[in-house]
Design a protein around this nucleic acid. Structure first.
Lengths: 224, 224
DNA sequence: GCAGTTATAATAGCTTTACTATCATAAAGG
DNA sequence: CCTTTATGATAGTAAAGCTATTATAACTGC
């Protein structure tokens, strides 16, 4: 299998971390560290210690830790869209595409050997716990101008287009899709920490329950 | 009209800010400052300057700025539930209650003179921009044990109960309600900053569009 | 094989944040 | 009037989030 690399928006980094050994170590270890410590407790200093490098070296790759988070999340959305493409490519019916898409969104995430130095399971936990912090900032408009949320927007557009194909009269395809994409991670978080806010449990059946929930909301909302 | 005061979980504060002049100034000014600066840039030092007090004095009311945020958000949910009660009290049909409830959730928020020193419009912007940061932390389980998310959970339960009354067979009432409550603020944020993720605009019609969106998703999802 | 560029490391330092400790003073309550 | 108790004033600490400087190693072109 050929090695794949996602081409992410160049404003996300100062030096492309995919091109160098140090860069790859930064990515791999930051996924691990943010997952373990949470984004607030994560610092470039701790990351530097972890990979036996130094703070200034990391700053040559990423302007600050917020950009690094945006990079990881951008990578996640690229990966998710890549997976969705994989499972919808052979389908023609937009309804079927949507179903396959929601399956990918809701499914349990595990290590994808196509991408060597990223632990997708940990990255998914990061998305669940930290995604909203990526855009809920005072610099959101500047970040958006630089295209730093391109991954999320691109995926949302793709799915919304299928919604429109199913029902051209449905008035809020983008709102519905962004709601569902966020609900997918919120419900996982609630199941783990605030269970009274969800009906999805902690056991392995959660992924199927989540998929059913997303399907119900989506298809009932857009029914012709 | 009698003056109302919400009784919030006592773990949210060290000294009840509603009882003293300094406490009220802390609340009023923190709403203003967090709204203007965002939660990250907001510090107790800046707040102290604003109200001509000192950092240690504020620390006597709130353990840290995260607790203060939880307090404000807890207050917001209490206020929203109070408003929902106000508009659903006279209704008997759970469908009608749900409709009235979604109207309150989606409506434009403006200053409520029942509560003197809180600017509900600014507080709503804070909820839109900062709510997720209240629970997306590594201490979420401890905070939850102390009951710091009681306001959100209480409201979610109340609405989910009405959903169950409308359709006792719907399998995910809590997931649906938490999704909708969060969607209400996410869509406002997207309309303001990432418009391609929503179909709700910037003009005054947004509140009605949001209400319609929430209604469609809710009632189509739970239809018998 | 040498000169020049470039990546990384090593070290230091600066400002701000988040928080604590100590002491003084003023107001409120019994 | 004496004593709690709230607030203010001041100082200080550890860590976070950067930046600057210099050294060294590696690789690049000639």
């Amino acid at each position: 299998m050929p090695t794949l690399i996602f081409k992410l928006n160049a404003h996300l980094y100062l030096r492309d971390p995919q091109n160098t050994l140090l860069g790859q170590k930064i990515i791999a270890s930051s996924v691990d560290l943010i997952d373990r410590l949470g984004f607030e407790q994560f610092t470039f200093k701790k990351l530097a210690e972890e990979i036996h490098s130094t703070e200034p070296s990391i700053y040559r790759y990423f302007e600050n830790k917020h950009r690094l988070l945006l990079y990881l999340i951008g990578w996640y959305w690229s990966w998710l869209e890549y997976r969705i493409d994989l499972f919808t490519n052979s389908l023609t019916d937009p309804k079927e595409k949507l179903k396959a898409c929601l399956r990918v969104v809701a499914e349990k995430k595990s290590y994808d050997s196509t991408f060597e130095f990223i632990d997708e399971e940990a990255l998914h936990r990061i998305v669940v716990a930290e995604l909203d912090k990526a855009y809920l900032t005072k610099q959101v408009d500047n970040d958006n101008k630089e295209g730093l949320f391109g991954g999320f927007k691109s995926l949302c557009k793709k799915i919304a287009d299928w919604v429109v194909q199913v029902n051209p009269n449905y008035p809020s395809p983008h709102a519905l899709v962004s709601t569902l994409l966020l609900a997918a991670k919120q419900q996982i978080f609630f199941a783990d920490h605030l269970p009274s806010l969800t009906n999805i449990g902690k056991d392995e059946s959660r992924y199927l329950k989540l998929e059913v929930f997303l399907n119900t909301v989506l298809f009932n909302s857009i029914q012709e």
